[in-house]
Design a protein around this nucleic acid. Structure first.
Lengths: 211, 211
DNA sequence: TCAATCACTGTTCATTTGAACAGTATGTCA
DNA sequence: TGACATACTGTTCAAATGAACAGTGATTGA
């Protein structure tokens, strides 16, 4: 279950594996056997092929026979199963529910286990703006992870209320749902016309500002 | 300099671009022209080639002529993220500084860009226990990411103070370092004998409890 | 000492893949 | 009306690439 079986690899094999990983990192795809050959100065392409074969046999690489650039780092491949690619839709989630084809700002990669969610969970992320949720320990600049589902009372949700999008606690009183900020300086929000829940908060990621 | 020139793209071109991005994200390398052809059900491979040519011309893809899988998403190529494997050392970090070979509870996978750290950063994680840092919006059960380096005054650190390990704010007064909890119910900690900084907090991951 | 692995050289071949050429049909801009 | 872009079909060719075969030496463990 060791994620990186480097201990079983020889020094040379580790060098090759490292090159494959770096190449993928920098170029977006794994190297060809001849690119490996050129990098290490092998006179023969077979030297590269041999190394790849050994690395695949030891589980460090995953191999797709016959395909161009068919040797992929195994770690990335294994993690991909549980690795969530979470689209970050920016600070203002207005319009999110309708625009299914909206392009995310970028993707965050977090594995499902770290967030305590299913590997099949459909999550999206929003950047928090403002201090209306500091009482729930959600700060300006935090990234919140949300999943689209119906909220239970007390959950923190991203909601579209009367056309405005916001992150608030979802509450129900006498059958009527409303939103409450976790900051006494903000009033409760009672929907005048409609209340659309975009997602329920399942987690949070914060970059601690340098002191 | 527009990072995503989606506005200039046609609907069909956006579909192709989206497929290329998804394929790269899930497989680790871009699709071949024939994989694009198969996905869209084109009778001719040239249809895929034409789309790629248009996308490259409009700056949405970066093209390496003649190379296998030579069409890369322009954004991903520039902003390529690297996945950090962050060891989680449990709730009680005592013994951490000495035991380099200590077995982590498990690993968390988060990409470097999401945390705003370098791809070469050496991070470790600890699970927070107790309410001594709620004033800094760090809760019981949160996971904090730390990096081993000398702290600046005001930074939040994991420290070994007189044999006890704890997460606190690092402060200096009259040349003497001490630790302060972010909760008025806890007293300042002045090291009697020694103060060992295990790491400086760079980020935080929270699983939002279901309401 | 045999068998196996490692780390290569040198050569050949088949497949994968990109790329070009010649078309068709539609729509837009000037 | 013509020039041009989009969105394709169908075919052919060449380059990029993986993969196999036949070796050489050195090292290691049984």
């Amino acid at each position: 279950m060791s994620p990186t079986p480097s201990s079983e690899l020889t020094a040379r094999q580790r060098e090759v594996l490292s090159f494959v990983r770096d190449h993928q990192r920098h170029h977006g795809h794994p190297p060809t056997t001849r690119e490996i050959q050129a990098h290490f100065g092998f006179a023969s392409q077979t030297a590269a092929v041999d190394h790849l074969r050994a690395l695949a046999r030891k589980g460090a690489l995953q191999h797709h026979a016959g395909k161009a650039r068919g040797h992929l780092p195994a770690l990335a491949a294994a993690l991909r199963t549980s690795l969530l690619e979470i689209p970050l839709y920016g600070t203002i989630p207005a319009g999110l529910p309708t625009a299914a084809e909206q392009e995310p700002d970028r993707y965050l990669s977090v594995d499902a286990a770290s967030l305590g969610v299913s590997a099949r969970a459909r999550l999206f992320a929003l950047r928090v703006r403002g201090d209306s949720m500091t009482g729930a320990h959600i700060l300006d600049g935090d990234t919140v992870f949300l999943t689209p589902r119906d909220p239970r009372p007390g959950a923190i949700v991203a909601a579209l209320i009367d056309g405005e999008s916001t992150l608030k606690r979802f509450l129900v009183q006498r059958g009527r749902p409303f939103l409450r900020a976790e900051n006494p300086r903000y009033p409760d929000l009672l929907p005048a016309t409609e209340l659309i829940i975009q997602g329920v908060m399942v987690g949070l990621l914060r970059q601690q500002p340098a002191a």
